[in-house]
Structure formats: C-alpha cells, structure tokens
Simulated assay, not measured.
Amino acid sequence: MGSVVNSVHREPWYKGKIVGQKAPLKLKDIWALRVRLQMESRLRELALFNLGIDSKLRGCDLVGLKVRDVCHGDQVASRAVVMQHKTQRPVQFEITPATTRDAVQKWIKQSELKSEDFLFPSRIHDSPHLGTRQYARILGGWVQELGLDPAEYSTHSMRRTKATLIYRRTKNLRAVQLLLGHSKLESTVRYLGIEVDDALEISDQTEI
C-alpha cells in the first residue's frame, strides 16, 4: 500500500533542459572573450580560459594542475603531460605560444606561484585549488558576457572546443582520440557527436 501512496507524479528531471552534449565555443566567441579578458587585465581568467581550450582537459584535471605540470624551470613549456583523474591514463597537450603560454606565464609571475603550488589556487580558505563548481561558475560568467544561452554550455564545452575544430579541419578521428585521452574510438565518436557511418568512413581513410 505504501508504494501506492508514494507514487506521486513527478516531472522528469530533464523536462525543459537540453539533454546531450554541450556546445563547443565558436572561434569568434573565443577571440571576443580573449580580447575582453586581456583588456580588463583579468589574468587568472585569461590563463584558465586559454589553458582550458588548449589542454582539452576535464574540469577536475584542469583545476588540479600544478605549476610544475606546465613549466620547465621558470618557463612555461610548449607541451605538458597530465595523468587523467577519471581514467588514470596520461594525456599530452600543447601550450600555444602567442596566447596560452604568455597568459599562463604572466599569471604565474603576478601571483608569485612556486613549482609545487597549484596553478589556480582557490580563494576559498578550505580548498587548496579552484574547485570544479567554481570553475563552472566562472564559465557561466563568460557565457553570459558573450550573450550565449547558458543552458547550451558547460565546462565540457571547453574540452570539446579545440577537439571539434581539429576534427572539422582534419577529419582525423585517431588524432582527436589521442588528444582527448579516450581509450576507445567509439568514445570519441560519441563525444564529438558525429554520425557513426561518417566516423567509420573517415577512420578507414586515416592511415596510422
């Protein structure tokens, strides 16, 4: 009888929400935000934004980066290797010179960060580094500033942005798989939201 009493009609959790992959950022939005952050000297956000795009890391891996992960001595490296928290598999990424390397270098210098320090220390006392929720809030602010629909974007939009651009330009699924640190090509196919037939056709044409 208890089950009958408790069977109150509930709206599905996804009602009114967009279910599925979050949208990657467009090039014009990337540059619009970069310019704004530079003009307003928001170094921490600029470093976080540029590194988020370049690294294609999940939010938990991005906020957990230490200075030593991206630096050789006192210089920001051209490439970095990070162990992914979710898969415990290493993934390598490039740190582009004109945008990301410069922004990260300036942020480290301004904040006087040492090798063992977290790259993005938290401003909340009981947390050693920026949390994923804080990162999501910061991203929400960026989306708002760009005049985009907040329901269509999340921190995964940052992870997907460069991967999607690389795929569109090269059609090289294997390369994108390696850059995202996926163990299976099928995961990359789903992540990019491309059709399986299209993916297999491209995969057949891609010599490794």
Rank of each mutant, 00 (worst) to 15 (best):
K162P: 02
H156E: 14
H85P: 02
L173H: 06
S78I: 08
A175G: 03
G140W: 15
M83R: 02
P121N: 07
N172C: 07
P90K: 00
E152L: 11
E152K: 08
V143P: 09
S115H: 07
I166H: 06
L148C: 03
T170K: 05
V76P: 02
P150C: 13
V176E: 03
W142K: 02
Q84P: 02
V104D: 07
A151W: 15
A136H: 13
Y135V: 03
H129M: 00
P150G: 14
K114D: 08
L113K: 02
E116A: 01
A80T: 03
W142N: 02
P150A: 14
S78L: 08
R160E: 10
R169A: 11
L179K: 05
L139K: 08
S78N: 04
F93W: 02
T96F: 15
R159Y: 14
M158N: 12
I95W: 15
L130G: 00
Q144M: 12
T170C: 05
R123V: 00
K162A: 09
Q75P: 00
P121G: 01
L146Y: 06
I138Q: 00
V81A: 03
N172A: 05
E94W: 15
S157Y: 13
E152T: 10
P128H: 11
G131H: 09
T87G: 09
S127M: 14
A163G: 03
K162H: 10
V82S: 02
P97N: 15
F118C: 04
D74Q: 08
H182M: 07
D74I: 06
Y167L: 03
Y135M: 07
H125F: 13
I108P: 03
R133E: 12
A175P: 01
E145N: 07
W142T: 04
G141M: 12
G147W: 08
N172P: 05
T87I: 14
R133H: 13
G73F: 12
T99H: 15
T164L: 09
A77S: 01
G141Y: 14
E145S: 07
I166T: 06
K106Y: 13
L173G: 06
T170R: 05
L178D: 11
M83Y: 06
I138C: 00
H156R: 13
Q177F: 06
H182R: 04
H85Y: 13
A77V: 07
K109C: 15
A175L: 07
P128Q: 10
H182D: 04
E112P: 03
R169M: 11
W142V: 02
A98W: 11
K162W: 13
E145I: 08
P121Q: 08
R159K: 09
S183W: 15
V176F: 07
G141K: 07
R89D: 12
G141T: 09
A163N: 07
A77T: 06
A103D: 14
E116M: 00
Y167F: 06
D149R: 10
S157I: 12
S157G: 08
L119E: 00
G131W: 12
H72R: 02
Q177D: 03
I138K: 02
T96S: 12
S127H: 13
F93C: 00
E112G: 03
G131Q: 09
